[in-house]
Simulated scan of single mutants.
Amino acid sequence: MSDDKQQQTRDEVAQEKFGKKFEELDPMERIQVGGTIGGRSRGDAEGGDHKEHLNMVAQEKFGKNFDDLEPMQRIQVGGTVGGQAGGLYTGTGGDQ
C-alpha cells in the first residue's frame, strides 16, 4: 500500500472511530486504528465480516457488542481476534 493510501486509510478509520485525524489521536487510539485496519484487511482476505467477528468475541468475553466496550476491553478483543487469525489462539476462554 502506498504511503498516501495508507495515510488516507488511517485518517478514514480515525474519523470513523474517534472523529479526529490520525495525527490528533493519542497512542492508545492509534493502536485501535491500526488494529481496525489490520482486522479489516484480514477479514477481506478471508472473505469474512470482521465487525461480526469482533461482536462475537466481545459477546463471549464481556457479554456486550464491540462498540459498547471500554477501550481496554476493545484491545483485549482485538488481541483475541488477531491471535485467532494467526492460528495462535483457538478460543476466548472468557475473562472472569
Score class of each variant (00 low, 15 high):
Q15G: 09
G19L: 04
M56K: 15
G38I: 02
M28W: 08
T80R: 09
E23F: 02
D68N: 15
L88F: 14
R74S: 00
G34H: 11
G19R: 05
G83S: 10
D4K: 15
M28A: 14
R10C: 00
Q32C: 00
A85P: 00
M56D: 04
L69A: 01
S2R: 12
S2W: 04
S41H: 07
E60Y: 07
D26R: 14
V81A: 11
G82M: 07
Q7K: 14
G91C: 02
G34E: 10
Q8S: 03
G78F: 06
G87Q: 10
L54Q: 08
V13A: 08
D67Q: 14
T9A: 12
D49L: 06
R40D: 06
E60P: 09
G94C: 08
T9G: 00
I31C: 01
Q59P: 00
A14F: 01
Q6C: 04
N55Q: 05
G93F: 07
A14W: 00
F18G: 05
Q6F: 06
E70A: 13
G86S: 14
K61A: 05
E52T: 06
G43V: 06
D11C: 02
F22H: 08
R30A: 06
G19W: 03
E12Y: 10
D4R: 15
R40L: 03
A58S: 14
